[in-house]
């Protein structure tokens, strides 16, 4: 069964015909080729598939695509604008927060939301914000430091 959904994807209005048994992650990766959103576990346990829905981070592997109808979705592909890296992306790279990079898109989107909600997060708040995103490579420390370096006191 298919259904048409309307959404704003990375700032662009779109009508998409999706199968009702596709997750949003499937549609992004398989149909739209937006492979920056990763599939780490496919069951809501790792955060590799994080996208922003109306600004908030969500595991897209746990969301039926049809449920994105009427929403605004931002993926990692939308973060760098006009050929310029976003300050979060720069900070992540400078502070060593990226290793294999598989968790990175999710981490960056969570950070984006965090800093919008709370421009000066404390270490505990940072750890809490990324607590649904698993990173096996970095041991989190350099990620936490990168986010902290962006805090505006």
């Amino acid at each position: 069964m298919k259904k048409t959904i309307r959404l704003v994807l990375n700032g662009e209005e779109k009508n998409l015909l999706v199968n009702v048994n596709q997750t949003l992650l499937d549609v992004l990766r398989d149909d739209l080729g937006l492979t920056g959103t990763k599939k780490g576990c496919n069951q809501g346990e790792c955060g590799a598939c994080t996208v922003l829905i109306n600004g908030k981070p969500v595991s897209s592997c746990s969301l039926l695509a049809v449920k994105a109808d009427g929403k605004s979705i931002d993926t990692i592909e939308s973060v760098a604008k006009e050929g310029h890296l976003h300050p979060i992306q720069i900070a992540f790279n400078e502070k060593g927060a990226i290793q294999c990079g598989f968790c990175t898109p999710g981490m960056i989107l969570v950070t984006k939301n965090l800093l919008e909600q709370n421009p000066n997060p404390q270490i505990d708040e940072i750890k809490e914000a990324i607590s649904g995103n698993i990173c096996r490579c970095t041991g989190y420390l350099q990620i936490i430091n990168a986010i902290k370096s962006l805090a505006k006191s």
Binding site: G44, G47, T50, I53, P57, V58, S59, V110, G132
Partner: peptide
Amino acid sequence: VGSPLLRSI
């Protein structure tokens, strides 16, 4: 409940 990535849905 769960993680921050689940609580908004």
